[in-house]
Structures are given as C-alpha cells and as structure tokens.
Design a protein around this nucleic acid. Sequence first.
DNA 1: TAGATTGTTAATCGATTAACAATC
DNA 2: TAGATTGTTAATCGATTAACAATC
Lengths: 205, 205
Amino acid sequence: MAKQIPDIVIGRLPVYLRALQQMLAEGRQVTSSQELGERLGISAAQIRKDLSQFGEFGKQGTGYNIEYLANQVREILKVNKTWEVVIVGSGDIGRALAGYSGFSERGFKIRDIFDNAPERIGQQHGEFTIKDTAQLKSEVQAAGIKMAMIAVPASAAQDVADLLVDAGIRAILSYAPVNLSVPAGVRVQNIDPSIHLQRMTYYLD
Amino acid sequence: MAKQIPDIVIGRLPVYLRALQQMLAEGRQVTSSQELGERLGISAAQIRKDLSQFGEFGKQGTGYNIEYLANQVREILKVNKTWEVVIVGSGDIGRALAGYSGFSERGFKIRDIFDNAPERIGQQHGEFTIKDTAQLKSEVQAAGIKMAMIAVPASAAQDVADLLVDAGIRAILSYAPVNLSVPAGVRVQNIDPSIHLQRMTYYLD
DNA sequence: TAGATTGTTAATCGATTAACAATC
DNA sequence: TAGATTGTTAATCGATTAACAATC
C-alpha cells in the first residue's frame, strides 16, 4: 500500500501549481522554495516538506525548474489528463460555470449541463444545450464520468447528490449551501460565498 | 487583550451556523453535539471544544437550544448585523453574485456592482446599475464599507485588490484564480473551482 | 432517580518549523 | 572555491480526541 499522504498536503498542491503556472506565464524558468513561499504566504520549509512526500524535484544551490516541477505536480494530482465534468443546475451559477474558460487549461472539460425544469431543457447556452436530468445517469455511466458540480437550490441538492453517486460520480463540487451526505469513497468540496464571508467578519469591527 | 481563538475554529463556526439554521427550518428546537457532529462529519468533542472557546451554551443532559445557539454563533461571528459588500466585475460571476438571494439571510447585502468597461457601465442587472470603478473609492469610504468580492479576470485582480485596500476594504472574497498580495490586517478568501476540483482528482483513478 | 449530555482536562496525535549535512 | 538551496531529521507547536466529573 502506498504511503499515506495527509489531505492537507494534497490541498496545497493545486495552490503551488497555480503559482508555478503564473511564474511560467511571467517567463520565469527557475524558482526556490523561499520565493514560492513568499508569494503564497507559506514557509519555505513547508513547501519542501510537502514536495518531499512525492520525490525529489529540486537541485541544491539552484532550486526548482518551474516547468518540470509544474509537470510533476500535475502528474501527482492526476491533472496531466483531462477530466470530464457534468454540471447539474442551469441557473446563474450553473451557466457561469458552463461558460468559465479557466477549466480547460487546468485539466477539466465541461461535458454537459443538466436541469430538470421543462422550460429550461433544450435551451442553448453558449456551446451547451441543457439536457434533462433524467438522462444524466445513462450518459455519466456510458462516458465513465467521475466528477460533477452541483448548482441547484439547497432544497434539491441532496437529491441531486444521491443521483450523481448512483450514476457513479466520485467527486462533487457543490455550490449549494447545505451539508451533503454521501457514502465513503465519494469526495465533496463545498463553495458557499456566505460561509467564506462569515469567516472574515469575526476579524472586522 | 482577548484570548486568541485559532482561525481554524473561526472557520468552522459558519458551518455550524448553517447546520443550525437548517435544523431550525426543519422545525427542530434542540440538538446535541453528537447529532450536529454526525451531520457535519465532525467529532462531538470538537464541536463542544470549539464552542467552549466562547462560553457555555448548552445544558447537561439536554443539549443545545438551536435558536439560542444560532444567535450566539451569529453574535460571535458578528453576522447579527448586516454587512454591506461591493462587487467588482460584472461578468458572469459578478452578475451571478449580484443576483444571489442567499446573502440577505446570512448577514450580507450587496451594495453595488462596479466595472471599468465603458460598455458595461450604466447597464442594468436586476436591481443594480453597474457603476464605474472610478467611483468606487469615494463610495466605499463614504459608506464605510469593509467587505468586497472580486470577480474580474486574473490579470486585473491584483490592481482591483490594491484599489479596494486603498479604499478601506478589510475583507476580500476573490473569485480570480491568482494569489493576491495584501497588507497585514486585510483578510482574503479565495474561491477557485479549478483548485477545488484539483484537490479531488488525486483520489480518483 | 437514572440516563443523557455538557464543559473541561489530560493524553494523543499530527502538522509545522528550525536546523543542517549534502551537494549543486 | 564560496554561496545557495535542497531534502530530511528532530524539536516544537498546535489541534483533536478520549475520558469523566458535574449536573440537568
């Protein structure tokens, strides 16, 4: 069995990757744990420790080749391939996600957007035609899709999550402001702007 | 000086609050640390420990009165009042945020939405007329607004953050996929769907 | 009363940091 | 060579959990 990597370390890798890509875009070729740490507000020791969980990617005295390290991190995170993702919910958030151009260069491709409201099914949004949720399971299964985003009202989110899990989805990014309950083996990440805002008000006066 | 509360505890309080509000909506009156923990996938001991940082809110043998505890948590987080928030950026994300109905019941009110593209300024979206970013500083200062959301492209985000900080904003929720650099005393939360998705792919095969 | 659950202490567990030999 | 920076170990720090007296 492979060495167990702390989830908190996995959580930092995408942030490192984003910073590395940014440096590349600036035309940089080499960086150090110290420089990266300063950009991210993380200690250099922590970055080195995190990376050392997966191998040796740097050179003493020199630092890290940015392109090489970025590729290694992509491989670790398995985003050196493209993951198809379905969106459920075609309200403002679902449509904003469907139109978001940032996914393709980060390893994701929106496959389809689903809704169950008859007046929305069949509507065209950008390159997508909204499909009936009733077709979700067979399509997800046929295509072997493992990831989904939920952008439906809170009241419908648990039902959608159940449907997704039943269809074989194993990772869910939910924009619905509720705590979803899913079986072990299915991962959930939540995005709720109110939660993020409430996390900051404590520090204001 | 007040006892220093770990930020990780502050980060869990909004999640507790959301669950409590949900229970209230279900017509429940009383809960326990155990029940709350099961809903959230958090240990009962941790919930009791977190709450004990701020006082005693429960009753032995009985548990917590949900409405009372929710009000106490709101007070701790300072969301027992309404915070005005400005949005910068009127693309898909900015407009989705401006139209999001969930803020009002969680302690927030969108004050205005700003953009710097001449063809967008003056446009009407729902109840908002998009204002010129050039007016942001004076308006934020005059109204004493402390919170903002950034929904502009990555390339413009740091400039917007600088402007916001200069205007007196002290808490920023950013949807731009970059690491913002801000002075000490200004809080930043980031929402980047790619980051959240990349955090889950590691566990898929 | 008996059962349940809190608030808190002490023990455990895990994550971060400091420091440095190795080496480019 | 001298300077810089890695990868790693050990020390420190902080967070979580287990356990239980107090008490509703």
